[in-house]
Design a binder for these strands. Structure first.
Length: 472
RNA sequence: GGCUUGGUGGCAGAGUGGUUAUGCAGAGGACUGCAAAUCCUUGUAUGCCGGUUCGAUUCCGACCCAAGCCUCCA
């Protein structure tokens, strides 16, 4: 099936053509690990997961790389900001290294809970200092670098004629809008490749280099690690929307002089998950984390279901109201599938219908990841009267692979819960209620139902008598 | 201030030059003593003003508003 993706570089929807047939290399800019990842962070990981699943469903092999930024970087190139890793270490009274380990672990855990397939590689910046230094050396040889004494090694953006092509900006524009200016930099857009450690304070993370003790610039790690794991040229580089103008622009500037342009074929950017008041912040604490949702009683799949309803290029507004709606919608879907599993229909899978629906489901998501349209087809399928249960269930397995909604798993759990036999005392109360009903003593019947409910069971009436289902 | 996206019903959120998805919520109905579940039916929207067009929510322009980026950020 022809895959199409919106390429930020060309600002066009393009047919995807892989470098190697039936294989795709994807790099996704990962998080800085100084705090728990919030739901907004998870949305971008989810989106790159959806892109990967789409490729897998189309028969591709996928090499998916997502980095962990565990080097603390100053919040600006002007030496004015704080180092987030060092700040996190101070906050928790841990070493910088322990902070990184702790939050990588929690990030991976939350991704697992959201059923995000683990990337093929999750390299850490601190494990690739050597590769980063080598990149700087290559750039140095090519004449792209200069030193600001006591500060660091900088990249001279004026040496690259098409600098800024990804963000569609020019130097004059930036100069006009600039708020801060580092007088030591040759150009406003120049950025650090290597920062020297301060002379008056000891950094927890610092390394030797040909230029002196210090630490690498932020943009460097993604260039170094993507090329190490995906080759000098690869298919897709993705990341949050905010990376277009600075981070990815600078990655291109560092990489293309070395490997030639175009370095990467397709640039894909994920829009943010917003709150009504604005952007989500890490300082919101655990309120907006996957584990926070679980503590509030939500299934992470409800959140996944919510995300699937939007489009990755469009900001989405998060609220507990919309999450509730998604949770209800997801639950209804699971209910229907559990019912399918309980049907005593011996009709086998209809291969023609399976193929037809398989393609209907795969088509919209292959077209620039229109997951919401795929969801519509799924709803149509579940409602459809002509597709038998076996075919639907076979398609549910395909849908689970494609969308990662764990429908079969949740439906199985629901069915198991419903088939659990109630304890004798509950059975006894239900039988009494049936008697009360038969004698039309409805007040007593309702009272018994309330008692059964308080014991954790729900009694429902069927043509064959009462049924007891454990409350979930 | 500059740049970039958007403004769709109660909420979230798609698509489309002419019959406007889907999910949740709402209303009515079937079923039930009442419920639950399920099924059926159904109302409600395209920021504002112009323009192009037989016809615009969709294309073009102005305006208003919102979000993001311009400083680390998913």
């Amino acid at each position: 099936m022809q895959i199409r993706l919106y390429n930020t570089m060309t600002r066009k929807l393009e047919d995807f053509v892989p470098i190697t047939p039936n294989h795709v290399g994807i790099y996704n800019c990962g998080p800085t690990v100084y705090w728990d990842q919030h739901l907004g962070n998870m949305r971008t990981f989810f989106n790159s997961d959806m892109m990967k699943r789409m490729f897998l469903a189309n028969g591709y092999t996928v090499n998916h790389v997502m980095n962990f930024t565990d080097v603390g970087h100053l919040t600006s190139d002007e030496d004015t900001g704080e180092d987030k890793m060092e700040k996190g270490a101070a906050r928790e009274n841990l070493s910088v290294w322990d902070v990184a380990n702790k939050y990588i672990k929690s990030c991976v855990n939350d991704m697992d809970l959201l059923n995000i397939i683990r990337p093929t590689h999750t390299p850490r910046a601190t494990d690739h200092i050597k590769e980063q230094i080598e990149l700087i050396q290559k750039l140095e040889k090519l004449g792209f670098t200069y030193e600001i004494p006591g500060d660091g090694i900088y990249y001279d953006t004026s040496k690259l004629p098409d600098y800024g092509k990804l963000g569609g900006q020019n130097l004059a524009e930036l100069r006009g809008g600039a708020r801060i200016e580092n007088n030591n930099k040759r150009n406003i857009t120049d950025f650090a490749l290597w920062k020297f450690s301060p002379t008056d304070a000891k950094r927890q993370m610092e390394w030797d280099s040909p230029w002196g003790v210090g630490f690498p610039g932020w943009h460097l790690e993604c260039s170094a690690m993507s090329m190490k794991y995906l080759g000098d040229h690869f298919d897709i580089h993705s990341g949050g929307q905010e990376h277009i103008k600075v981070h990815h622009t600078n990655e291109i500037a560092q990489s293309e002089p070395i490997v030639g342009a175009p370095w990467v074929r397709y640039w894909v950017h994920w829009a943010w998950l917003m709150l009504r008041d604005g952007k989500m912040a890490k300082s919101s604490g655990s309120f907006f984390t996957v584990r926070g949702l679980i503590e509030k009683g939500y299934d992470p799949m409800a959140f996944r279901f919510l995300l699937l309803q939007g489009h990755y290029r469009q900001p989405m507004e998060f609220s507990f109201e919309s999450l509730d709606a998604a949770a209800a919608g997801y639950k209804n879907m699971v209910r229907k599938i559990a019912d399918l599993m309980s049907q005593n229909d011996a009709t086998p899978v209809n291969q023609d219908l399976y193929n037809e629906w398989h393609d209907r489901i795969l088509t919209p998501i292959s077209d620039n990841l229109k997951t919401s349209e795929t969801l519509v087809v799924v709803q149509d399928l579940l409602k459809n009267q002509t597709v038998n249960a076996a075919t639907k269930l076979a398609l549910v397995d395909f849908i689970d692979d494609l969308l990662g909604l764990q429908l079969r798993d949740r439906a199985t759990k629901l069915r198991d819960a419903e088939s659990e036999i109630a304890p004798d005392e509950v059975q006894e109360l239900a039988a009494q209620r049936m008697t009360a009903k038969q004698t039309r003593d409805f007040a007593h019947a309702d009272e018994l139902r309330a008692r059964i409910d308080s014991m954790g069971w729900v009694v429902t009436d069927t043509p064959d008598g009462f049924k007891l289902v454990k409350k979930l």
